[in-house]
């Protein structure tokens, strides 16, 4: 009996890293970057289960992130709800909406599914812009501070703790799910739908479920974002933001929970580091991304894992 089960090791390492990071990068600005990474990573873990594990593309998840942001802004600001309650209302609304639109569109495959999710995302963003009476229109609106048990969450340190804690729980749950029969069924339907159905897996229902769950997770992250930045704009629900999430998981590694975190970190830190190149920032960013995708085809984490186990098959 080993002292510590090997499959729990990555989670323990993540815990240590999350604790150590704010001591290494404790500046106000650095902490705000870490918070942003954590929030994006939460979204990416969910999208990676959908795209990387189950093999169903989505180019509209930023819209679900946006719904979460606005649900928190509107319910706390206009209706005086408790922030946590608003957050859960956002998750519920988003998941139900995702399941409802997912039911028909997840019958589509490949490019057609990509187009449909893109369309859903655009429509949602348009609504957020147009319904200015509720959402504040293209300029966005301010968001009240989050209060938990009567305490106002204030400052980068407090927000870092909340986001890091949430990310840890999300990764724990995603790891559990991946190693469960449910996660196995997700991987199975990605590999062969006919064989999955023959094994009794309700392929379509599974696709809708992971679509709704990943949308709910995006909504949760959107709520955190809204409160942490105290402001929301429709840009958070934009197509570009959706693509950014997908790029994060492709760079980090499709199907890899930890790849989602690495991808989110790289895509957020890199532009900050490259900003000193001023005019050439975007060029350098693009070249680096192409290099990563070209040299590490499976994404950073799965490629490193292959090298680590010595199997360069």
């Amino acid at each position: 009996m080993p002292f510590f089960p090997a499959h729990k090791l990555p989670l323990a390492v993540l815990g240590l890293v999350l604790v150590a990071l704010p001591f290494l990068f404790g500046g106000k600005y650095q902490l705000s970057i870490l918070i942003l990474i954590g929030i994006s990573a939460i979204v990416c873990v969910g999208i990676n289960l959908l795209v990387g594990v189950a093999g169903q593309i989505s180019l509209g998840h930023a819209a679900f992130f946006g719904i979460g942001s606005y649900a928190s802004a509107v319910f706390t600001g206009d209706y005086g709800w408790n922030g946590i309650l608003a957050m859960f209302a956002g998750i519920l609304i988003t998941s139900v909406l995702a399941a409802t639109v997912g039911w028909p569109i997840l019958r589509l495959k490949g490019h057609y599914l990509a187009m449909a999710t893109l369309g859903v995302g655009l429509v949602i963003q348009l609504l957020l812009i147009q319904e200015a009476g509720i959402t504040g229109g293209p300029d966005g609106r301010a968001v009240k501070a989050l209060t938990i048990f009567g305490l106002r969450v204030k400052g980068e340190w407090a927000w870092y703790c909340i986001v890091a804690g949430a990310l840890f729980v999300v990764v724990w749950g995603a790891q559990n799910l991946m190693s469960s029969p449910w996660g196995r069924a997700l991987r199975a339907l990605h590999a062969s739908e006919p064989a999955s159905a023959a094994a009794g897996i309700d392929v379509h229902q599974m696709k809708v479920a992971i679509f709704a769950a990943s949308a709910g997770l995006a909504s949760f992250a959107g709520s955190l974002y809204a409160h942490a930045l105290a402001f929301v704009t429709p840009d958070q629900a934009s197509f570009l933001h959706s693509v950014e999430f997908v790029v994060m998981i492709v760079v980090g590694g499709l199907g890899s929970v930890y790849g989602s975190l690495v991808g989110a970190a790289i895509l957020i830190v890199l532009p900050q580091v490259l900003s000193s190149l001023s005019d050439y920032e975007n060029l350098a960013f693009g070249v680096l991304l192409i290099l990563v995708v070209y040299l590490l085809r499976k994404g950073i984490v799965p490629t490193l894992r292959l090298i680590a186990v010595g199997g360069g098959r």
Partner: peptide, 21 residues
């Protein structure tokens, strides 16, 4: 795992049960 996937109907294949393990 291929064979385990064949046991799908006999496994604890619920979403929440998988999440909490």
């Amino acid at each position: 795992e291929n064979v385990l996937a064949g046991f799908h109907l006999d496994s604890s294949a619920g979403f929440l049960r998988g999440l909490l393990r």
